[in-house]
């Protein structure tokens, strides 16, 4: 690309349409919300508007709820690596030139299509502690394979199938009322239920679609040449496909972090109401509640900008890590 060091004019032309809309509909409102985060703006006008500087941020640091929901948000991200890895695996399978691949792709994408209400009702039924098929299978395994008898023999209490959406317990034993761990809270509960559901929805969803698109850009001649040279499947993937996928992987990882840090809103709103006892409330849902149910726009903006800072730092880390690992 020598000799084309500065295309500033052309670049300006190409950027113009996007940057105009971007300035008006994104940048402007963002600056506005940043300004608002330094005020006590309340839609309900019980308190007169005033600039409060960093008060909102200070209050937030002391806000027990904020930290609880922050922990929830992070915890619910645990399914992310599985979802991304699974998407890649599926995409590789589906990028083979076999008959009926479009049918499979469509089928895998269906959960992303299907309306949230339908999915919610169905998953609630699946997670039903007494009659749901998931617990039926777990019970069958526990009884059938004599696992409980075995546990009894070695002096442990019997295992019971989890209560799923009704349960505040979680794998790490996070406490309900303050940030911390309690042994009594160790188990499987609503958060795990949401993680599993999330992986199921995401695995054949947008990430798979992106990987599929990226895989079609992998030059087929390279792959075939390598195969002729006798390279194993894994080596072909590792040394030809994977580097070609690097920019897409980078995109997916960055967007997944952003998406899941801002996520959990729909689930909380339609499926769990953020419960039981607030264990599935995420920061995005908290911001919504603060802004549109409690009218504290100022405070909600402060939470949003703290969330921004967290995402920003994570993206920077991704960037550094990505440069090394993804040769990007």
């Amino acid at each position: 690309m020598k000799g084309r060091q500065n295309d500033i004019l052309a670049a300006a032309g190409f950027l113009l349409p996007n940057i105009l809309g971007f300035l008006v509909f994104t940048a402007g409102p963002l600056v506005f919300s940043l300004a608002v985060s330094f005020s006590n703006w309340n839609l309900q006008r019980t308190i007169p508007f005033q600039w409060t500087g960093l008060d909102g941020y200070r209050e937030l640091m002391r806000d027990n709820e904020f930290w609880l929901y922050f922990v929830n948000t992070i915890y619910l991200m645990l399914g992310m690596p599985i979802a991304i890895g699974g998407s890649l695996f599926l995409a590789v399978l589906l990028s083979q030139r076999l008959r009926g691949m479009v049918v499979y792709r469509t089928l895998f994408y269906l959960p992303t299509f299907t309306s949230g209400v339908a999915l919610m009702i169905l998953w609630k039924a699946l997670y039903n502690p007494s009659f749901g098929p998931i617990n039926a299978v777990i019970d069958w395994c526990l009884q059938g394979f004599g696992i409980n008898d075995l546990l009894h023999a070695i002096g442990c209490g019997p295992l019971a199938a989890p209560q799923w959406l009704l349960e505040t317990k979680n794998l790490l034993g996070l406490d309900v009322e303050q940030v911390g761990f309690v042994a009594a809270q160790r188990g499987i509960g609503a958060r795990e239920a949401l993680i599993i559901m999330g992986v199921w929805i995401a695995i054949g969803g947008n990430n798979m679609l992106l990987y599929l698109a990226a895989l079609t850009n992998v030059p087929q001649e390279l792959v075939e040449a390598a195969q002729i040279d006798g390279a194993s499947r894994w080596r072909v993937f590792r040394h030809i496909t994977w580097p070609q996928l690097a920019p897409t992987t980078f995109f997916i990882v960055v967007m997944s972090f952003i998406g899941s840090l801002q996520g959990g809103f729909e689930q909380a709103r339609v499926m769990t109401n953020g419960g039981p006892a607030g264990t599935t409330t995420t920061l995005a849902y908290y911001i919504y509640t603060k802004a549109f149910q409690e009218y504290q726009i100022g405070y909600a903006s402060a939470v949003a900008w703290i969330l921004f800072a967290i995402i920003f730092v994570i993206t920077l880390i991704n960037w550094k890590f990505g440069q090394k690992e993804l040769s990007y």
Binding site: T26, L30, I258, L307
Partner: peptide
């Protein structure tokens, strides 16, 4: 550009 993606849309 990228940074603006990191703000939850709800506040704007």
């Amino acid at each position: 550009y990228l940074a603006t993606l990191m703000i939850p849309g709800i506040v704007t």
